[in-house]
Write a protein that binds this DNA or RNA. Structure first.
Lengths: 155, 155
DNA sequence: GTTACTGCAAACGATTTGCAAGTGG
DNA sequence: CCACTTGCAAATCGTTTGCAGTAAC
């Protein structure tokens, strides 16, 4: 679990900071690294706890939010909002390769890969717009919930 | 702008309420009707103001949230979360027919219809899951923002 | 040295909740 | 009439902001 962050990603952030007159702080790179080491999508609280528990690195939420905003702005992170909960983030490099299937009853989220869907979306030309990435959420019922609802005659 | 709500939709809600032992109140049907009369996606505050201003009907936010939850549960409304703002809702009958294009810089949202994309998504079979509807968001830069950012050398 | 960044705590806005009063079945 | 709903106000949760101390450049 040490530095698995590619130099390319790190440079992309450094570049962005430089180009926009932002400073290169230890905190900012630590957050980028942790974000890119997360297995799944994560929220700010999870990131905070993980940095504290696993690295002993305390970063205030203000700084976390601020930095994540920068990472979203420079397209290294993608923001998701599943349901009403806290915003979830995900490395851009992962986000493009799958979509999310969400059970509207129990809230379970699964990731699905599918090239047909991916290509249909990416090939779509949109006038006066340059697409950078997409989020696809398919809502419905997982088999467990569907069965449970049927038994209760609520379907 | 009077009752344009189809009997089918109304019955679908009545049915759901009955089936689950919820009561059929004036407020619930008024909210359903207003929600289905909105031109675009809307948030709770907008719905509240519209009912008050146009119909003189005051409904507490608690009731609005409660009822909208029911409408989402019975698949008459779809919930969207663009950006970090308040949740946006949309009649299910409209939601399936388009996707959203969102400028990550200025936040502008456009609706786009495309049957290729729609079919690719709807034809996707997912194991142990029954799809009901989907939300597709394509993020990127609108031409105005792209031009502005290029001038500032931030791209 | 400046000026932007950080951490803290207070503020904020959307949503939820507790409770007394109202109303559908 | 009883239990579910409503409206209100207070509480909660994620996120943002103001400000004093700290560190990049």
């Amino acid at each position: 679990m040490e530095t698995t962050l590619s130099a390319e990603i790190r440079n992309q952030f450094a570049d962005y900071l430089l180009r926009n007159g932002f400073r290169q702080t230890q905190e900012r790179f630590a957050i980028l690294e942790q974000a890119y080491n997360m297995e799944e999508h994560f929220d700010v609280e999870t990131l905070y706890k993980k940095m504290l528990d696993e690295k002993g690195f305390h970063i205030s939420r203000a700084t976390l939010y601020n930095t994540i905003e920068l990472l979203v702005a420079c397209r290294l992170l993608v923001r998701h909002q599943f349901g009403t909960l806290a915003a979830q983030y995900e490395a851009r490099t992962k986000a493009d390769k799958h979509f999310h299937v969400i059970c509207t009853h129990c809230g379970a989220i699964r990731e699905i890969k599918d090239d047909n869907v991916r290509n249909a979306v990416l090939n779509k030309r949109i006038t006066k717009f340059t697409a950078e990435y997409y989020s696809l959420y398919i809502f419905g019922l997982c088999s467990k919930c569907k069965y449970a609802l049927k038994r209760k005659n609520q379907l």
